[in-house]
Amino acid sequence: MSIGAKVKKFRETRGISQDELALRLDVAQSTISSIESDKNIPSSLLLNKIAKELDVDINELLNEGIQVNISNNKFSDLSSAGTINQYNPVFNMQSPEIIENILKNQQQITKLIESQNKFIETLLKKDKDL
């Protein structure tokens, strides 16, 4: 079942109209309509808001059989079907692992910049000596 079909199913189950859901999400009714008819794929941010408004876990809206694993900054598809998820995976940008990786990357970038600056200083010094 597609994300759009699931959104429609959960919305109708809760007795919420497209207009009402759109109003709660601060989007146009046509946005909800295009999502439900699979003409448009919601961003991860909008999908998260939809899940909250419909009081469902966001994973219930995502494709069945698709699990995405993130480790060492690499993605791998863990689905039993081996198909590639056509929707963007949703990440919790406040997870400790992601924050830790961002900080490590920033430290590495800082070291590279410092190394580059020392190299440039060395080149400039050699140029003055000539």
Rank of each mutant, 00 (worst) to 15 (best):
D38M: 05
R14P: 01
T13S: 14
L54Y: 01
D55I: 07
Q67M: 07
I50A: 00
A22P: 00
E64C: 07
K8F: 04
I98V: 12
L45A: 14
I66T: 05
L46P: 02
F119K: 09
L130V: 09
T13W: 11
V68G: 02
G82N: 02
T122C: 11
S76L: 04
I113V: 12
T122D: 15
S43A: 08
E121R: 04
F75V: 09
I98Q: 03
T110K: 11
D19W: 03
K111R: 14
V56L: 06
K104D: 11
E114S: 04
G4Y: 00
E60S: 14
L124T: 13
K126N: 13
P96L: 12
I16F: 03
L47Q: 00
S2C: 08
Q86G: 13
R14Q: 13
N117R: 05
V56M: 04
L25F: 02
N105L: 12
D55V: 12
I32K: 00
N48K: 10
E100D: 14
N63C: 06
T122M: 11
T110A: 14
Q107T: 15
N63A: 08
S30H: 11
N63H: 06
L124D: 15
N72L: 08
Q18R: 04
I102N: 10
L54K: 00
V56I: 15
L61K: 02
Q94C: 09
E53S: 01
L47G: 01
S76P: 03
I109K: 09
S33C: 08
I70G: 01
K39R: 15
F91P: 05
N40E: 14
N73A: 12
N101V: 06
E53P: 01
M1P: 03
I120L: 09
S30D: 11
T110P: 02
I109Q: 09
A81T: 13
I32Q: 00
M93H: 09
T110H: 10
T31F: 06
Q116L: 09
G15Y: 05
T31V: 14
Q86P: 09
E121T: 05
E100P: 03
M93L: 13
N59K: 12
S33R: 03
L23S: 06
S17I: 04
D57T: 06
Y87S: 11
G82Y: 01
N59V: 10
